[in-house]
Design a protein around this nucleic acid. Sequence first.
RNA 1: GCCCUCAUCGUCUAGUCAGGUCUAGGACACAGGCCUUUCAAGCCUGGUACAUGGGUUCGAAUCCCGUUGAGGGCACCA
Length: 490
Amino acid sequence: MTVRVRFAPSPTGHPHIGNIRTVVFNWLFARQQHGKFILRIEDTDRTRYVEDAIHVITSGLRWLGMDWDEGPEVGGDYGPYIQSQRLELYRQKAEELVAMGKAYRCDCSPERLEQVREAQRARGETPMYDGHCRNRPPGEVSPDKPHVIRLKVPREGVTVMHDLLRGDIVFENRLLDDQILLKSDGFPTYHLAVVIDDHMMGITHIMRGDDWISSEPKRLLLYEAFGWEPPVYAHVPLVLGTDGKKLGKRHGAVSIDEFRRQGYLPEALFNFLALLGWAPGGGEEREIFSREELIERFDITHINLAPAVFSYDKLNWMNGCYIRALSHDELLRRLIPFWVEAGMIPPEVPVEILPTLKLLVPLVQERLKTLRDVVELTDFIFTDIPVPPVEKLIGAKMTAEQSLDAIRRVQALMAGAPHFEAEALEMPMRQLAADLGLKAGQLFGIVRNAVTGKEVSPPLFGSIEALGRATTLKRLERAEEALEAYIKQN
RNA sequence: GCCCUCAUCGUCUAGUCAGGUCUAGGACACAGGCCUUUCAAGCCUGGUACAUGGGUUCGAAUCCCGUUGAGGGCACCA
């Protein structure tokens, strides 16, 4: 039997990273089992439909490196894969259930239903349909007038769901509502559409968030009504924010696109997501796994059952690991869009600035947690800096006069250096520090502030080389002037 | 209110199914140190956890029951 799993999002906006983690599990399982991964769009709620959401979903999946064997953009033998294009099927199946006496028509108004629920809540009961139309003779509710079709849920007995991770979960039927299958607008509800599609599309395993557990018996009852064999279920726990609440916007980035824009590598995010709620076990102590290793090692039955808190700290660490593992060329390629986006370089990167960028890459590589960090780290290269406050130009345990002298000597050195390269600059600078009776750190600190405008910067001489002689000299000169003015004043 | 699920360091987890090798291992974060031109990176060291009460057993993080806590569900939403 070929394993067939699916991801069935609603096009209601950006897919949530918690849901994406569940997708990662599904995809990993499909690939490991040499099965099929199917993408199906569940757009049966016309009131929440968001334009372009399908594209957001597909491009997000692609960015994360998850492909699908059947679905939008790729087709397949079980299409269409968009539920709004399958409406006739759902209607027909709902009618079949009515004909079999497993479902019934109901024309209760929303107002009446709300009243019933209100009264039930007041009495402390679980709000549910009171069965008004269930007890009416068949045919009394006209098929030609607006109505819904409800499932006739048994009033007694239990429905047992077997969960791959939790074993049998028992539900009392009397606590289950007569679920609406077909809405009055002719669209199916989730329960009807998902059962029909999963069955018709030959889905063998359903991995979904555990927020679906409570409603699973409704769908199990539908399988039973149709006489279909239900798939294997595995309900995976939800992802929470740092405060233990369901992950949401206030916790930071939650959509794939936000993670991309913040400079996370897709392979790092994928690795992180796979390890959120799952671990290889067996004494394995590594945390970094390639996609292939994850496919090979993933074990659906070893998913942790407790909800997992999404840790940005750990993701940042992992992203840094992946960045450090990139080749210089590859890192440069990925960094360019972030420089462009920040307006530091033009979208069509001129060839003459390419050498500067190449110089920068090894300088920043081990300092990046995200690709976007490169902007703040290297902005002094691309944009003019304000003259640093004079106290930053005075070295540790030094006087203004000493500092001024040092700056002038550095200027001379920089102006006369035969090779304006990091290695060629460093030795003379160290020698200069020694000549002045300074520690290297004292001198370098002044120069760092003068040239980069920062107390913390990438390695000094690499930065100076990237900056170029002219700009370096200009900034040193401004520092010199600032110190002169300061000394004159005092 | 009713129903369901879950419970190991602050966080992600190994160990739980097949009780002893667990005075509970790793990673992130944190603290200290080394390296060092700043910051990183790297290396070394450190602290911190089996929610709780009972039971079963020679022996329980591991099995059973209760309690507490947390999460989820109870729509013409998915």
